[in-house]
Design a protein around this nucleic acid. Structure first.
Lengths: 220, 220
DNA sequence: GCATGTGAATGGATTCACAGCT
DNA sequence: AGCTGTGAATCCATTCACATGC
């Protein structure tokens, strides 16, 4: 009789949740390929992961496997969807209608699969009213609070320049948004209760540059 | 007489190099604000970092501080630029002329500061010949090898769909590219010697969703 | 027999705390 | 006096290895 154990969410680390997303993706693929069950060993080999880590990670959510058999693919997948909160729609508001903001609005990953764009906003008069390729209209930055309330925005995306990013984060927080994804290349100061994740393209590029520099230097 | 110590690059972890990029950014700001020296304590307080970690990280590059004083801002900055390999131009090739690829081509972080777009390529006939907002023309995927040689491409960016990503990575590797930045939401298998970094927007969004789910559930 | 679930062992990364230098 | 550089201590994450249960 498994699974009366309450899932301890506090205990699940950021690294683990990232991997849970990966597992969900793997399971979605396996289900579409017709698999009914899968073992941690199969998963590990197929997707270049470590089987012990898979078991540890999945075990955070309660006992879902059957000893001697493995995991039930559709059941585990549904459970992951539920645990990651992907069984409801998350509405995403993008601040900044520059190249990046507009591209994100049209990007597949932000529309579908549990997420949808609520709006794009900008404070540049000349950008307000324009539409993205797939038809999202740029609204006025000043209407932030009304938009958040009306569209029940869950997640704010910061796609503005580095010097404006903190202001946008703070305005999101004041407007009642509790989760923010930042693309500006700067260290933001997060408030308690308003989760911040940053994607810093610049750091990724520089990290590759560092790698290249070392192979170049060692090669001489 | 410091600094005859050879910098041991093998020993510098991925996490550390990421922070070195952050420090470089901080120092660039401080220099523009006219600072001559800065201590690890100042840096830590100002940018919400840990002073011991800053010292450990910087010490990987050799002894650059002065006890009782701190670090010389322009000198340390120049050294970081050199160590990260940012004192030469890195040419970036983008595969995939969809929304994301085109946006990245026009994105500020990919042009300037040591990086420049060499080309965008795609295998969709209807996209070849189009231009991005800032004027980059989409070239033919089939010319990959010639383009890499002619433009001396350093870094390849994967901005195609998940199912095509591995093929693109492998083609990059075969064409002689040694560093790849992947945006496709999939687990790529990397080859030795061809550095891979992945930016998975989907995982970031799902991680925020997980956070929101937990505050919602705990709030009830 | 076979694969999960998990304590124990390992390996890294962060932080502490202070000796040593300016 | 003040701040760096760094061993020691701590914390966290990964991996091992096996008892447990189907």
């Amino acid at each position: 009789m498994p699974n009366d154990r309450p899932t301890n969410h506090e205990a699940i680390s950021e690294l683990t949740t990232g991997r849970l997303s990966v597992y969900l993706r793997c399971l979605t693929y396996l289900q579409s390929a017709g698999y009914e069950t899968v073992s941690s060993g199969d998963l590990a080999e197929r997707f270049h992961l470590n089987s012990a880590q898979i078991r540890k990670d999945l075990n955070c959510l309660g006992e879902f496997g059957t000893r001697g058999v493995g995991y039930n693919v559709p059941r585990l997948k549904d459970h992951l969807i539920h645990e990651l909160g992907l069984d409801r729609i998350r509405r995403v508001l993008i601040a900044g209608a520059g190249n990046l903001g507009m591209a994100l609005a049209d990007y597949g990953g932000f529309n579908g699969g549990g997420f949808e764009i609520a709006a794009i906003i900008d404070n540049d008069e000349t950008k307000i009213g324009r539409k993205s390729r797939s038809g999202f209209e740029v609204l006025a930055w000043d209407d932030l609070v009304a938009i958040v309330r009306e569209h029940r925005v869950d997640i704010g995306v910061v796609a503005v320049t580095a010097d404006a990013a903190q202001k946008v984060y703070d305005a999101f927080a004041d407007a009642g948004i509790n989760a923010v994804l930042n693309f500006a290349p700067t260290q933001l100061r997060a408030r308690p209760g308003v989760k911040l994740k940053s994607v810093d393209l610049r750091i990724n590029l520089e990290s590759l540059s560092f790698y290249l520099k070392n192979v170049e230097d060692d090669g001489v």
